[in-house]
């Protein structure tokens, strides 16, 4: 397998883990915003308790994705940062406000007004960030970012401010909210509270399904080559079938209150969606002018980088497992 494919794989795995970890942390913010009913306060506390120890570690996957892009696929990084300057900047503001507001709320004392103010900031930023992340992914998939001679030739707005990227933004938001609600069912022993999150997870699953359909319909004009990939390759049909079954399974497991199973299936669902996109877009890193191969840095860079990634994984991997064992034993 060529070196750049290994690296593309590592980028995808990192993005995948970012979605499964940080994605759910953002989803938690969505449920903080939508906390309602007699257990409003308990819902918020459960969310804060679940996110607190792990959000910063989960966040590092995004840094890793960025670093891997600029070391291994520098032309692509430059092109994305140019064409998507505006949504990426909005996403960054979301990241800054989410992280700081969450911490300020946690350490800001018990004053209710203070709690509410930071809580609202935290929740709003938790919505903006996944939305913009999805918009950027949608723009990359849409094929609207055009390049010539290694430079972006499209303007700074039209590639992402379009129905398809925006629908992918909403889809991402729904997916993250779904993941979070499913995880949260396992963050409490309290049955009514668990039911709150179960109901939210089921509603979010409906939203995910609806948005998936919207994205699929929009893709015929909004992202034609991805649509081809998802509809007409030899693997398309079985892949779609498996994803559909997993999604239905997750709903079934939630319905029958088998929460650990629901968590596994929800994670599998997000993973399948992400890799489906990756496979449909392959061999393009940015549709339709830049392939992974054309964007790749020379082998003298990729080889030591892979070695460093291996060494880093030996250190960070067990540490991450330890973190999850200490705080997420259930």
């Amino acid at each position: 397998m060529p070196l750049e494919l290994w690296l593309a794989g590592v980028v995808m795995v990192s993005l995948n883990l970012y979605a499964l970890g940080a994605g759910a942390d953002f989803g938690g913010g969505v449920w903080d915003m939508l906390a309602r009913g007699p257990r409003e306060r308990a819902q918020r506390e459960t969310i804060a308790h679940a996110i607190g120890p792990i959000w910063e570690a989960n966040h590092v996957w995004l840094i890793l994705v960025i670093v891997l892009l600029f070391v291994a696929f520098p032309v692509a990084f430059a092109a994305l940062a140019t064409a998507l300057h505006i949504p990426l900047t909005l996403m960054l503001i979301g990241i800054v406000l989410r992280g700081s507001a969450f911490t300020f709320r946690g350490y800001g004392g018990q004053d209710d007004a203070v709690q509410r103010r930071w809580g609202r900031t935290f929740a709003m930023a938790s919505v903006v960030t996944p939305l913009m992340l999805g918009v950027c992914a949608g723009a990359v998939a849409s094929g609207a970012i055009r390049m010539r001679g290694g430079r972006v030739v499209t303007d700074f707005v039209s590639a992402w401010l379009a129905p398809f990227p925006l629908s992918i933004g909403l889809f991402t938001l729904a997916l993250f909210a779904f993941l979070a609600a499913v995880y949260l069912t396992l963050e409490t022993e309290d049955r009514p509270l668990q039911d709150d999150f179960r109901r939210r997870a089921l509603l979010a699953a409906l939203a995910v399904g609806a948005m998936a359909l919207v994205c699929f319909l929009l893709s015929s004009s909004g992202a034609p080559s991805i649509r081809r990939g998802l509809a007409r390759e030899w693997w398309s049909l079985p892949f779609q079938a498996v994803t559909g079954l997993v999604a239905a399974g997750a709903i079934g497991a939630l319905w029958t209150r088998r929460f650990p199973l629901a968590r596994v299936l929800a994670m599998a669902q997000v993973t399948l969606v992400l890799w489906g996109w990756g496979l449909a877009q392959f061999p393009y890193l940015i549709e339709p002018d830049l392939t992974f191969e054309a964007a790749a840095a020379p082998a003298t860079v990729l080889r030591p980088l892979l070695a460093a990634l291996g060494a880093g994984a030996v250190v960070a991997g067990p540490s991450l497992l330890y973190l999850y064992r200490v705080f997420k034993a259930r």
Binding site: A57, V71, P74, A308, V315, A316, S319
Partner: peptide, 19 residues
């Protein structure tokens, strides 16, 4: 970019153990 990749892992360890 290599030191940034290494920094990524150092940052991982830092964030994990700070948690």
């Amino acid at each position: 970019g290599m030191p940034f990749a290494l920094e990524g892992f150092a940052f991982f360890v830092e964030a994990i153990f700070l948690g």
